[in-house]
Design a protein around this nucleic acid. Structure first.
Length: 349
RNA sequence: ACGGGAGUGGUGAAAUGGUAUCACGAAGGUCUCCAAAACCUUCUUUCCAGGUCCGAAUCCUGGCUCCCGUG
């Protein structure tokens, strides 16, 4: 049975660092599971670069393919632009697989990540999925029904003009079953309503809705999976987030956004890319006038994000959680992974 | 001490005397393709004490606190 390591948890807990360490020790490669790191050129704002990565003087980072810098202890060499990044000698897949101009979907993610995983397995290496985007992780590991019902652009274009009430009415008319199946908050959620209408209208046209599209490997590959979760008390999480926002600004996050806009990324699209980029768009457009304000707002937004991640991951099953504020957690994670990695018999949990 | 101004949720603001509102924040939640997204719920009774009025955050009196100017 193929082994697959998953590292999940809220932002700023050091998932990628742990992933890199595991990769070095257990001959692995990383697969990022993040809805924004998939986009090219969103490097600093999405945290593709380690947040404490300090470029050496002279090392060119901005929009280039290679950066050399240092982390607290050691030199790091970052290379990108080959379909994966290579950081400190470890390959990271699912960075830079899409253009910001196009919307990258969960479907795309599952397809592409499966390919990367297959390739890693073929080489006899350990795939390490490092994930913060709950939905993507779920889709990849468990599959989502209806995932193969594609986005219907023209339908969406029409529906997006409608008010919430109109959407509700339309869904009720087309399929009261679907409407009944939605919970109270989704019924108020235009985006969910649109997707629901999209789904049922395809069913009506009699297109077969295939069930579970994919699990790892494309064909229900049986895997021996170990899930490691990283977490920390709220307060600590917030502190780490706050610090990281500042260090990203030091790394040049604002310039990155400026450059992206100059290269044709509209502020509207930038907002769609969420969090940092949304706030940065406000800043560049003058809706936020000081860096202090920018920092505060950004920190607050990411606090909320971390909360939502915790809510989501709370329900994830069979996760071995580690609190990164407890001494020796890294040693414990490592021995946990080690015993799993070298076991020949499949673990029940 | 005197003159002037101000006291509304954690923060910043709003409310011709008429059911205390908004943003941010915090906490909880939803989740079958924008998911770092979108959405839902909760969080003050207006500095204190009196008074006027059918009715007060809003008007009056007193107290307390803060800010500005003068000494």
């Amino acid at each position: 049975m193929k082994k697959l390591l998953v590292i999940l948890g809220p932002t700023s807990t050091g998932k990628t660092d742990l992933g890199l360490n595991c990769a070095k020790k257990f001959n692995g490669e990383l697969i990022a599971c993040d809805s924004r790191q998939v986009y090219k050129k969103l490097d600093i704002g999405t945290g593709k670069l380690p947040s404490n990565f300090l470029p050496f003087a002279g090392a060119k980072l901005k929009g280039l393919d290679i950066g050399i810098g240092k982390l607290p202890g050691h030199k790091v060499r970052v290379e990108k632009g080959k379909g994966f990044w290579e950081m400190d000698g470890v390959k990271i897949w699912m960075y830079d697989v899409a253009d910001t101009k196009n919307q990258y979907t969960v479907f795309d993610y599952v397809r592409d990540a499966n390919r990367a995983i297959d390739e890693i397995l073929k080489k006899g290496k350990l795939p390490i999925i490092v994930g913060g985007t709950g939905l993507y992780l779920k889709a990849l590991l468990e599959g989502l029904p209806n995932l193969d019902i594609p986005i219907n652009r023209s339908l969406r274009r029409r529906l997006e003009k409608l008010s919430k009430e109109e959407l509700q009415k339309e869904l009720q008319q087309i399929s009261s079953d679907k409407w009944e199946s939605l919970n109270g908050s989704d019924r108020q959620n235009p985006r969910r309503l649109i997707r629901a209408i999209e789904l049922v209208s395809i069913n009506d046209i009699n297109t077969t809705a295939v069930g579970l599209m994919s699990t790892v490997g494309g064909k229900k590959l049986q895997t021996d999976m170990l899930k490691i979760g990283l977490t920390a008390p709220r307060k600590v999480l917030y502190q780490r987030i706050d610090k990281r926002v500042i260090s990203r600004i030091d790394q040049g996050m604002i310039d990155e956004a400026k450059r992206l806009h100059k290269e044709g990324l509209s502020f509207e699209r930038m907002r769609q890319l969420g969090l940092e980029y949304g706030v940065l768009a406000d800043y560049l457009e003058g809706k936020i006038t000081s860096i202090e304000e920018l920092i505060k707002i950004m920190q607050g937004k990411i606090h909320g994000y971390a909360r939502r991640q915790l809510t989501w991951f709370k329900k994830e099953e069979k996760v071995f959680w580690f609190d990164i504020t407890e001494d020796g957690w890294q040693g414990r994670v490592e021995s946990r992974v080690r015993s799993w990695y070298y076991s020949t018999h499949d673990k029940k949990n």
